[in-house]
Design a protein around this nucleic acid. Sequence first.
DNA 1: CAGGATCCTTTACGATACTG
DNA 2: CAGTATCGTAAAGGATCCTG
Lengths: 125, 125
Amino acid sequence: MKKRAVLNNSQVCQVRISAIRDAMGILSGKWKIHILGTLLEGEKMGFMDLLREVDGIGTKMLSKELQDLEMNHLVSRVVRDTKPVTVEYSITEYGHTLKPIIDEIARWGMSYRDSIKEIQNPAQP
Amino acid sequence: MKKRAVLNNSQVCQVRISAIRDAMGILSGKWKIHILGTLLEGEKMGFMDLLREVDGIGTKMLSKELQDLEMNHLVSRVVRDTKPVTVEYSITEYGHTLKPIIDEIARWGMSYRDSIKEIQNPAQP
DNA sequence: CAGGATCCTTTACGATACTG
DNA sequence: CAGTATCGTAAAGGATCCTG
């Protein structure tokens, strides 16, 4: 009989914790989700496009975050041999798998706002 | 004819961005999700219970994060009049609405690990 | 038991200037 | 256009000790 990979409860928890840590390492911070969200909406975008669309970000952060996302295979970067050079950023196929999470976070954020409003200022007819 | 609350595309985006910022303000950081995850699993827990279950956290962070979560109505704190005093932390009903997000993040984190493994070490038969 | 106070290190983030 | 370099601030996080 084949041996199965059976995990006890504590091991299952550790796996879950690592998974959450990994995912949050990618999503945490002030900009990553917004960059991904912007790229999820549109087509290929240049650096300047993103700088305009992602409200408030500066070149340093944008460049750093894009590198992180690229390393994580969520965003792809293609250099066009124009003059001056242009760069096309777009979301990868795998990056699209984040859409449900981002949408769910946005949805929860909105309902959260509403519920807070209600706590501070109970519903009126 | 009644006036409708119609939002243009830019406004919809702003709402979405605020929502994401709010949600991430609550979920970001090294500990919040893990504390919530722990409380989602079990029953009421004391401070020391959490200190044990949430791997690696110290008293300062735990105390601070719990206060944040309480302020956001996601965790409730009840002081029992024992000697010495004990405190019961538990997740609120509203806190439970985060479960889908946390589960999805954990699920994504696991599939992410697998996919990275595959990129670095392609599938063998 | 529950957590505050203190001190310290490390990231995160931001503004500005500059380069190929 | 697409960034990098530099400098500086603020926030996050951690270790340890202390108190009601």
